[in-house]
Amino acid sequence: MLDFLFCGTNMGVSIIELVCRSEKRKNLLVYLKDGPRNLAAIKEALDVTSTGVLPQIKLLKDNDIVVQKDDEYELSIFGNIVVQKILPVFKLTRMLEKNPEYWFSRDISTLPMKFMERLGDLGDSEVIEPDINSLFDPPQELIDHLLVSQHVTTITSYFHPYYVKHFVGLAKKSVGVNLILTNDVYERIVEDYEEEAEVFFGMDNTSIYIYEGDLPVVSMVCADGFFLLSLFNKKGIYDHNKLISTSEEAIRWGHDLFEYCCLDLQEKE
Rank of each mutant, 00 (worst) to 15 (best):
E248C: 11
R106I: 01
S109Y: 01
S105V: 01
I189N: 00
F78Q: 12
K33I: 11
S149M: 12
E72L: 14
C262E: 09
L59N: 08
Y162V: 04
D224A: 00
P112M: 05
Y73Q: 10
D71L: 14
E126K: 14
F6A: 01
P139L: 00
E191W: 01
I155F: 02
L135K: 13
I210T: 14
V175I: 10
C261R: 03
R106N: 03
R21T: 13
L96D: 05
T153Q: 03
G254L: 04
K43Y: 11
I57W: 03
P139S: 07
G123F: 00
D184Q: 04
I251F: 10
M220K: 08
L147P: 02
E269I: 14
R25A: 14
N27Y: 09
Y31K: 09
K242A: 07
Y186S: 07
Y211C: 09
K24G: 03
E101K: 13
I251G: 10
F90P: 11
C7V: 12
V152F: 01
I155L: 14
D107Q: 05
F226Q: 04
N178D: 10
D214Q: 12
E269R: 13
E196G: 00
E101A: 13
F4L: 09
I244H: 05
K43I: 05
R106D: 03
E196T: 05
N27Q: 12
I57R: 00
N205E: 06
L181I: 02
G120C: 08
W253G: 05
S22G: 05
N38E: 07
I15Y: 11
E212A: 12
A171V: 06
K58N: 13
K91V: 04
Y163D: 13
R118E: 11
D192W: 07
L75N: 11
I180S: 01
